[in-house]
Design a protein around this nucleic acid. Structure first.
Lengths: 339, 339
DNA sequence: TTGTAAGCGTTATCAT
DNA sequence: ATGATAACGCTTACAA
């Protein structure tokens, strides 16, 4: 069990003081003669020295990102995590991952852990609760960026997401254009920002087309459990069945689709389907699903850029809101109604 | 930007010294009178004190787990990450996540970051390279557990995985029992532990049934890229086509299946298919796929137990190898040959 | 049983 | 331009 070289070892072999080494480490934190810098750099390379993050954090120099995601079981979040970790790594920043399972208590615990870890910034998909704790985190100097969702009460927080209303509108317009008028929508709970925005976009599209919006066709279901399947069942049991369905709750598309297949309903013959987010398998099922593809890599890039920008100081004050455009990908699961 | 209470604040409000507080914090590290302990506990609660991980790590008391996974885009790893993070959280341990994208250079970088972070233990799915760096990590006192895969050269490392040979054998026997004799196998590279073991199990099953093993039917393909699709194409182009296929490379089952569907081949009419790992969508496609289901929660639990056990001292010396049993789930994609 | 004080590796403040 | 030296928050001998 050897021990790693410290900044003092570097200073010694370079024949300088630790302060100088520290300065070359954090470029720009002080003046260093060119010749000296070279000696130090050489010493660092020779010893294979790496500054220890723990020691830095102790001085309030945390350069670690906390990532608080809902659920890695949802391919959308899994890919988001993949890209965020990737982007962070490209910038030499480690990521501490936490999962909430959409449970506010678990989320609360995670927030506490985040504080223990003295991370410098956090990227999160908030459950919607724990508002006080989020605020406390910010008060403690942790930079916070919400991704995918947001919390209305926390208006001073950066947000990165897709243009939820517009995306939902696009999907709706697509179905309207095909001739559908009874279009059902399964989305996240109305208490969530994504749920609200997607429902709003859907209704706006209907309104613009002069099609009345039937409340019965709108189902804001929770992210966890089999809520999607239940919603599907309920919609199909309606006296006046919808001829088209938009599943705008990524966590519920598998559940919804499974139920749809179980009922043996003909897609798109009896029911046209459009789902949110382009998981690899949406292409593998029969028929391949029309999807709203979220640019996950963009979400990741912007989130990381934002937190890091805040953490490293230079970023104009005031909250930033980044809304990237989603892409509608028509495939075979949507067609004109009535066969 | 307030500041969190320190151990000294606790000591003050409890009317004791910091060492006492430290002792109650790390239970068992020294004697504390019952009455005193209560006072301290009360003070901790009152101030909402939480020890800072960074300060602890500086003393070599790291209680953070590093998780090095291949690729969160692979549902198998995503779910593994989900469970590992979950198990760790249940024990109050944070997880630093890194991704290798199956690239040994990226992996090397991650190992370096892991050192910077002074994590106490690491759970990893190694690419197979960077042997020296893994050793160095261990020499530095970091406890290491490989999950899913292993590296033969690192025989002193704990390993948690499924019984790969047996699982492959089971899948093969299933197909043999259905009457297949030309059974193809797409697995990981023969340089990987999982690739080797699964091929071995497959061959053992064939041998036991007195069926000759045709090398042409065995395809050890890389985890990245479209290797699965290519392998499928090659197998179907064979003069004497296989009547059954086992895809034992979780990273390549999507790619393989997509190609299979594109060719319009009849499953299981013309080709029976069994794939490794039970992703949610394997049930959604037509026909639902027969799968080898890996007990991901078990893998996660054991990995976390192992690292933590090592980290916290009490664990018998000598490397541990945990091989949990996988479950074969027959569905409609496998049937007798020839229709 | 409890307290004192010396680290742990880095950054930051002052002097030089 | 460089160098001491005091933090940072906690653990841990070593004393009392």
């Amino acid at each position: 069990m050897k021990k790693a070289p410290t900044i003092r070892d570097v200073a010694a072999t370079a024949g300088v003081s630790v302060s100088v080494v520290s300065r070359v480490l954090n470029d720009g934190s002080g003046p260093v003669a060119v010749a000296t810098r070279e000696k130090v750099v050489a010493a660092i390379a020779e010893l294979g020295f790496r500054p220890r993050a723990a020691a830095r954090e102790l001085n309030g120099n945390a350069l670690t990102i906390g990532l608080v995601l809902a659920d890695l079981t949802n391919p959308f979040f899994a890919r988001l995590a993949d890209r965020i970790v990737w982007e962070a790594r490209a910038r030499g920043v480690p990521v501490v991952l936490m999962t909430t399972q959409e449970d506010s208590h678990v989320e609360a615990e995670s927030l506490v852990t985040l504080l223990d870890r003295s991370v410098g910034g956090v990227i999160a998909t908030p459950t919607g609760a724990n508002i006080e704790q989020w605020v406390r985190l910010q008060e403690l100097g942790v930079d916070l960026v919400f991704v995918d969702r947001s919390i209305a009460a926390l208006e001073n927080t950066d947000v990165v997401s897709i243009q939820n209303d517009e995306s939902a509108a696009t999907a709706t317009e697509h179905l309207l254009a095909l001739g559908h008028t009874r279009i059902a929508l399964i989305s996240g709970p109305v208490t969530t920002s994504t749920g609200q925005a997607r429902i709003a976009g859907y209704q706006a599209a209907l309104a613009a087309a002069g099609v009345p919006s039937d409340p019965e066709l709108i189902r804001g279901v929770p992210f966890r459990g089999d809520a999607g399947a239940d919603a599907v069942a309920a919609l199909l049991a309606l006296p006046e069945r919808p001829t088209a369905l938009i599943v705008a709750n990524t966590a519920q598309v598998q559940s919804s689709m499974r139920r749809l297949y179980q009922t043996g309903i003909d897609i798109p013959g009896e029911l046209s389907v459009v789902v949110f987010d382009d998981n690899p398998w949406t292409e593998l099922v029969t028929p391949p699903l029309s999807v709203v593809r979220q640019p996950i890599d963009m979400l990741a890039r912007h989130s990381v850029d934002l937190v890091l920008g805040r953490m490293q100081g230079r970023m104009p004050v005031g909250p930033r809101t980044v809304a990237v455009q989603a892409e509608f990908v028509p495939r075979s699961s949507s067609a004109p109604p009535g066969r």
